[in-house]
Design a protein around this nucleic acid. Sequence first.
RNA 1: GCCCACAUAGCUCAGUCGGUAGAGCACAUCCUUGGUAAGGAUGAGGUCAGCGGUUCGAAUCCGCUUGUGGGCUCCA
Length: 576
Amino acid sequence: MSNYPIETIRHSAAHVMAAAVQKLYPDAKFDIGPATENGFYYDFDMEHRLVNEDLKEIEKQMKKLIGRKLPFEHFELSRAEAGKMLAEAKQSYKLERLADIPEGEKIGFYRTGDFVDLCRGPHVANTGDIGAVKLLSIAGSYFRGDEKNKMLQRIYGAAFESEEAMTEHFRLLEEAAKRDHRKLGQELDLFSFSENVGPGLVLWHPKGAFIRHTFETFWKEEHYKNGYELLYTPHIGQSVLWETSGHLGFYREGMYSPMEIDEKDYYVKPMNCPFHIEVYQSRLRSYRELPLRWAELGTVYRYEKSGALHGLLRVRGFTQDDAHIVCTPEQIEDEIAEVLRFSLYIWKSFGFTEIKPYLSTRPAKAVGEPERWETALVSLRKAVDKLGLECEVDEGGGAFYGPKIDLKVKDAIGREWQTATIQFDFNLPERFDMTYIGEDGKKHRPYMVHRALMGSLERFFGILVEQYAGAFPLWLAPEQARLLPVSEKVTDYARKVQAELRQKGFRVEIDYHASSLGAKIKDARNARIPYLLVIGEREAEEGLIAARNRREGELGSLTIGQLAEKMRFEVENKIV
RNA sequence: GCCCACAUAGCUCAGUCGGUAGAGCACAUCCUUGGUAAGGAUGAGGUCAGCGGUUCGAAUCCGCUUGUGGGCUCCA
């Protein structure tokens, strides 16, 4: 057990791995090897193409080096000496890294056995101070993270201060894997993909579709309550629309290829904005009708790179919970504050309490007058302050068309998800020449804000599955209660109870299998059914139900009325 | 798109040296009529992802394609 910061241990482990690679593959050219969240990686370029079996051998070498307790020896060289040494060693990537070091800064090296690395450190005293290491995977990685550069070979490893800490890390990973939405989506029969339909195109099964229906309904009702109006717009539009919006100019490769109809090109929409703008342009607009808040569950298709697809979290066809707010400069501040408040309310309704905003400001290349950017930024900042939130700022990280706030929410096991986004747009109102008639009788350019609270319904659903580990709260659960008859003698009573509970608006099924009660309970629990209702001859005689629920366990024998009341309370308060 | 890996029954997986396909769960039928996490028997279920090659013979070896997973890039 050592007292070094964990990053120091991990970075030192990266050096040890590089030393092992150098020993096994003397022609290897090294790039960099930093610490990561749970370990380290190192990038290199060499003739040999690494395969998984190689990792075992490299790991063996590393353990040998660690066992020898080799010291990490620090030394410094002048720029000329360093360049000469790296050139002699044919370390071309290191030479480029050397050139990055600003004039006047010290040029440090570390030596571990035969391996010498350009590095500012710090490191542990000797390799014996590295607690536990395990190599994980091989990946390709572009030099300097640029797709135009050569792809280097990267090895990822885990490193911890002790074997126990590493075991604990892998245990947590297993826990996370148990709630993986792709695994649960199949087990609970929520959704699937089909090779015949196409990559990244989701098929919602009945149970998944029911959950979606429930949160869509909630979403729509809340939008009407909060002063929004809903729109429906088509899935395809002619090329002229996308030429005006600019998408064909700067986003063509992200769109599905066009289909030709009556000698015109139609594109499947990658976003809803141009359609909403067409609604706006359908007649002259007055300042008196602003702000307009138009929302749509708009299904869009984007040609995401195949390697980017990931379950429900990154798909090619998805439904945005989109809205566009068109308003005057005077209204913008209140509108933004209200959108932010609304987002927090929606996420809290699903049991997410830790929510953090990230503000992105003007990038180097941007459209729109600087004053408008400033007004927008001020309104975003004020909204964050008004809600008493702490906010991180990404200077220059905004889109070219406007500044934005993204929300990140933390889930039940502490992972952060990027979700809601509130974005100003100074581009489309210009391109479509959107105007309203002001008090002065003259035309003015309105402010336009895009916002999505859930993001995409597919992604939102994936996050929900992981948040709840498949155990949806009662208001969302597709099957809220399951009746478990002890024997077939009480089937009639089960039907009667089911009918009564359905009358009261609950989703109740009966397990008709001729299996034991124990087996039925196991099945119902695996299916994450919130309420299990056992009925046998005792209950049938007394007109009761022996209930248990997921949260509280045994509830004893209840009348149908008592049970319904309890469930109604849980549904109405969206108890998680 | 790029790097590495994977693809066998609805699901989870075995399948040795290249010799023609297996288990558990789920499903169906029958027996059992039961009391809080698996009662029993029988049965059905397969273009071994697809196409091509090597071979007397391919789930197995080789190539390509498709899909999926872990990364890189991307996410306007």
